[in-house]
């Protein structure tokens, strides 16, 4: 195990809207070690993206408001710096970079790919314009974009979705980021392109000794690539553990439900899927008890009357679960 790179403790962020307080990130704690690949999984609207944007201090405030917690990066609490501080500006990009689902929104449509690469390199490295340009070409080559010299002069819209996603990866490469947060990096892409791009990202992360946080709803993807997983439901983490423990031996009823909901390409064909009944709750006016209760086949009286079950250790390798009735006892 490497050194702790990022440690998030009890982070809380809400949006204050006309309809009420949206508890998008509700007391989450996690960490990423050097050269580690972790994943945050959960369904739409559970707070995955907001949690990561909070870490990067990219959330609009208001309506957003950080209600507590700390974000320790290499031991320093980033929340102590303001979102617009010089320190945060240097952290974003040079130290931590984010890759979003739709690269069109993170690439500027009116500038060429080369101009944008050059600019970000010059912000983070003391090099001349010419040197930055050459580094840009190298970065494009490292993400296996053919004809890198010509591609530098392309506008984002002249590239395919897979190619644009490679450009974003190239940007993190060019800046030697220590941590990459990839938020649904390949969700908009076709499966074969998805596999191409993710494999490329993984090999670069290995080569550059970078840490990676994969944010996704795709359980197969995390099974393939992540070393550790955090499962998120209604603004909270409900289970965490090594990929092997969590996927082969899920403890939280929600994790188990998710796993039995997805059809598999491998193994025997299942006769029937076992979906989770009902649908996820709104993050406004959440009850004081476990948010999964209305959908949970394991619920007992304790779940309805007790406070929200806290995350606790339920197995080896720091396997943690927030449930009164963890599957398999404990």
């Amino acid at each position: 195990m490497g050194n702790r790179l990022l440690e998030v403790n009890n982070l809380k962020l809400s949006f204050f809207t006309v309809s009420g307080e949206v508890k998008a990130v509700d007391d989450i704690s996690y960490h990423v070690d050097e050269q580690e690949v972790i994943a945050i999984v959960g369904e739409s609207g559970c707070g995955k993206s907001v949690s990561q944007m909070t870490v990067m201090q990219l959330i609009q405030m208001p309506p957003g408001k950080i209600l507590g917690g700390e974000v320790l990066y290499k031991g320093k609490d980033l929340l102590k710096y303001g979102p617009r501080s010089n320190e945060m500006r240097m952290i974003r990009g040079a130290e931590i970079s984010m890759i979003f689902q739709e690269p069109m929104t993170s690439l500027n449509p009116v500038f060429t790919v080369g101009d944008q690469l050059r600019e970000i390199i010059m912000v983070h490295k003391k090099v001349s314009k010419k040197e930055a340009w050459d580094l840009g070409i190298q970065a494009l080559k490292s993400v296996e974009i053919p004809d890198a010299e010509t591609r530098m002069k392309n506008y984002p819209f002249e590239m395919s979705g897979g190619m644009r996603q490679r450009v974003l990866i190239a940007m993190s490469v060019a800046c030697d980021s220590k941590l990459i947060i990839a938020d649904e990096p390949t969700t908009a892409l076709d499966v074969t392109t998805q596999a191409q791009v993710t494999d490329l990202l993984m090999s670069l992360v290995k080569k550059m000794k970078t840490s990676l946080v994969i944010v996704t709803h795709n359980l197969g993807l995390v099974t393939r690539y992540a070393e550790r997983i955090y499962v998120m439901y209604a603004g909270k983490f409900v289970e965490s553990g090594t990929t092997e423990d969590l996927i082969t031996n899920p403890k939280h009823p929600y994790t188990a439900g998710l796993l039995s909901s997805v059809p598999k390409i491998t193994g025997e064909k299942q006769e029937k899927l076992k979906p989770i009944e009902g649908f996820p709750p709104s993050l406004i006016d959440l009850p004081p008890h476990c948010a999964f209760l209305p959908r949970c086949p394991y619920a007992t009286d304790e779940c309805a009357y007790g406070p929200y079950p806290p995350m606790r250790i339920v197995g080896d390798n720091n396997h943690m679960c927030a449930c009164y009735n963890c599957i398999g006892g404990q």
């Binding site: 499966v191 074969t192 998805q194 596999a195 795709n218 359980l219 197969g220 993807l221 099974t223 393939r224 690539y225 990929t243 092997e244 996927i247 082969t248 796993l259 997805v262 598999k264 390409i265 491998t266 193994g267």
Partner: peptide
């Protein structure tokens, strides 16, 4: 074949 192999599965040990 390529298409199938690109699809990840949650069968951990098979994957």
């Amino acid at each position: 074949k390529a298409l199938i192999s690109a699809v990840p599965t949650t069968d951990y040990y098979i994957e």
